[in-house]
Amino acid sequence: MAAHSTSTKHIWKTFFILLIITTVEVGLGMYNSANPGDMNWTILKWAFIIMTIWKAYFIVVDFMHVGSEEKSLKLTLALPMIILIPYLLFIILNEAIYVHGTLH
């Protein structure tokens, strides 16, 4: 059980990190909605994606305690995601850009 001795202080710290990231995301989203074109959409979009993955990291590592699991388990969980999802994204979105305007 020693491996899981997360302190409540640490839990609340993670909560505030998640809360701050979400607030920043919502703030940027609201600003962009009110003033379309003010911010570079490509940069903003990537900022949203990076913040999302950052939040996911905190949830998985701290809340799901993967941070204190064995390295073998960490890799078992992370590798299928890291390999398969970008692969799927690449194939499907690439095709979507091609299909756009060709079929109805």
Binding site: M81, L84, I85, L88, L89, I92, L93, A96, I97, V99
Partner: peptide, 22 residues
């Protein structure tokens, strides 16, 4: 793990439809 891949499939499919009907 399987459920995560299922949701990834859904969200990627959403991305496909969105690009198609931009």
């Amino acid at each position: 793990l399987t459920d995560a891949l299922t949701f990834s499939g859904f969200l990627v499919a959403y991305g496909f439809a969105r690009h198609k009907y931009e």
